[in-house]
């Protein structure tokens, strides 16, 4: 669950904040020496929480279909361009209201990497593989799952809907065949 992921992080932050409170009580100021250099640093007393609310109205269909096990792209009927990530506007033809089409599910891995130094918001996952697969008309970036010995450029992969744990939300990934 998203709230559980956050609680774990908050516990770590709590320890740091307690130390900072102690510091302010002793010195009357939130100033501490940087461990390596001893340079005095002011610990910000103001906090900013960032969690964006991103509009998805024009591509709602993508998320509806994920729930039915399908991964969709959009297609401009005028110029036949397929858009993935899906978008409802074709800037080439300047038309909107594109057609929804199902992506081919089989493809080939073009490239990949294994992320070991992770962003803090991904630190609760084990090391993950991010790859880009060629599905014919479009490429898809996603996590690559399956046995490591099969992981190579040119490997066959299948695009599938998965539930991302521990958050428990629907997304898609590439499974090594």
């Amino acid at each position: 669950m998203i709230s559980e992921v956050r609680e774990t992080k908050q516990k770590e932050i709590q320890i740091l904040l307690k130390q900072l409170d102690g510091l302010v009580q002793i010195k009357g100021l939130p100033i501490f020496p940087e461990p390596k250099t001893g340079n005095p640093l002011w610990a910000d007393v103001r906090e900013l929480d960032l969690r964006y609310q991103i509009p998805v109205k024009k591509v709602t269909r993508f998320f509806d279909e994920l729930g039915k096990g399908k991964i969709m792209a959009t297609k401009c009927v005028k110029c036949n361009t397929i858009y993935f990530p899906p978008q409802d506007d074709c800037p080439k033809c300047r038309v909107s209201g594109l057609e929804w089409v199902e992506l081919p599910v089989e493809g080939e891995l073009i490239t990949y990497t294994i992320i070991s130094v992770k962003p803090p918001s991904f630190s609760h996952y084990p090391d993950y593989v991010v790859g880009i697969a060629d599905l014919g008309e479009v490429n898809v970036t996603a996590w690559v799952q399956g046995p490591k010995e099969k992981l190579k450029v040119g490997a066959k992969v299948r695009l599938e809907v998965v539930k991302r744990e521990p958050e428990g939300y629907l997304t898609y990934s590439l499974r090594l065949l």
Binding site: I54, P85, I115, K118, P119, S121, V130, T141, A142, R164
Partner: peptide
């Protein structure tokens, strides 16, 4: 949204 939010690229 499409490449970081779900896949955590660095």
């Amino acid at each position: 949204f499409w490449e970081f939010e779900n896949f955590g690229l660095t």
